[in-house]
Computed example of a mutant assay.
Amino acid sequence: MENKYNLKSPAVKRLMKEAAELRDPTEHYHAQPLEDNLFEWHFSVRGPPDSDFDGGVYHGRIVLPPEYPMKPPSIILLTPNGRFEVGKKICLSISGHHPETWQPSWSIRTALIAIIGFMPTKGEGAIGSLDYTPEERRALAKKSQDFCCETCGCSMRSALLALTANSNPSAEDHKAKELAQQINFKEESSISRQASESGGAESEPSTPNQEDTSTSAGQKAADSPQAEQAEASTVTGVEEPQAPAAPSTGRPLSPRQRRAQQHSQQGQREGRDPASRPAFAPAARQPQDESHAGSAVLIVLLTLALAALIFRRIYLAQEYKFDYEL
């Protein structure tokens, strides 16, 4: 594998170092890259004790980007567990779904310990999360011992060391656990921030920002054709066809959707039968008629001014002739 990759690449150097550090399995986790792909790792983690996953050993994949450790990996569980969907990228602050929260100081060891710490938490509708009952999770924990990966050939019965009462975590485990606690804190902070933002959206804002202003302006613009249409139908007594209402999703329409709605309403108004158009539609030409009347008045004034100038010239010519005869 060393001859296959550029050893000067930061990602290759980092992954080779982590592969050497994680070569030997522990009682709680183990991870190694595939023989033919340094950027895809397979891992096994033990379910956290005193939880619904106690006694289970779960297998999964870690797909690392070429920019690792500057960009986060993607984590996929392969063993049914009742907490994460099988074969789908899970959404955590250490995964590729949240590159804004990833830190280059985190490692694959940190991700493994964080996964173990995240398993007893609630899914809360996150991508790739499940909320099975405790009974279902305990049943899956027992079945997980029979899982064997077809890709790497790892069996869950022999993937990790047996638990002993005298097993003590290493210094690397302590450091990774501290980082995992920071990851948990960031995850809780992001959840609380989302809750506060949703709560603030329900209450009336005292100082609306620019986005809210533009949204309200767009809604007014979208409602104005409907108001004009209703007014026209009221005056003429002609019932206008109603435009199809936007699906009620509980969210405000985006600017693109509002423009599409306006275009569709305008096309429906223009494509109607001429007999059903309002009787006062020609009144829209009134500004053009007023401009024609103004032009006619201006022409008449210029004609009178020219005639007065001609008469003045004739008068002056006659007066000059009279003085000459005298």
Rank of each mutant, 00 (worst) to 15 (best):
3 N>L: 14
9 S>A: 04
24 D>A: 13
30 H>I: 12
34 L>D: 02
42 H>Y: 06
44 S>G: 08
49 P>T: 13
55 G>F: 04
62 I>R: 01
65 P>T: 10
69 P>L: 14
73 P>L: 00
76 I>C: 03
77 L>P: 06
79 T>E: 12
79 T>D: 10
82 G>E: 00
83 R>T: 08
87 G>M: 01
95 S>M: 09
97 H>T: 03
102 W>I: 06
103 Q>N: 10
109 R>P: 02
113 I>N: 08
114 A>S: 15
115 I>E: 03
116 I>V: 13
117 G>M: 08
125 G>K: 14
133 T>Q: 13
134 P>I: 15
138 R>A: 08
140 L>F: 04
143 K>H: 04
143 K>D: 12
145 Q>E: 12
147 F>H: 02
149 C>D: 15
150 E>T: 02
154 C>Y: 09
154 C>R: 15
164 T>S: 14
164 T>V: 09
167 S>E: 06
171 A>I: 04
172 E>V: 09
189 S>W: 13
190 S>T: 05
197 E>T: 11
197 E>N: 11
199 G>V: 13
204 E>G: 04
207 T>H: 07
210 Q>Y: 09
210 Q>F: 11
211 E>Q: 10
213 T>Q: 11
216 S>R: 05
218 G>N: 05
220 K>C: 08
227 A>Y: 05
228 E>L: 07
235 V>R: 09
237 G>Y: 05
238 V>F: 07
248 S>V: 02
250 G>F: 04
251 R>Y: 14
256 R>D: 13
263 H>W: 03
266 Q>D: 11
267 G>S: 11
267 G>T: 11
269 R>F: 07
274 P>F: 13
274 P>T: 10
274 P>N: 10
279 A>N: 02
285 R>W: 11
287 P>M: 06
287 P>I: 07
290 E>H: 02
293 A>V: 15
293 A>L: 15
297 V>R: 05
297 V>D: 10
299 I>E: 09
304 L>A: 00
305 A>V: 06
306 L>H: 05
311 F>A: 14
312 R>M: 00
314 I>H: 06
317 A>I: 02
318 Q>T: 00
325 E>K: 03
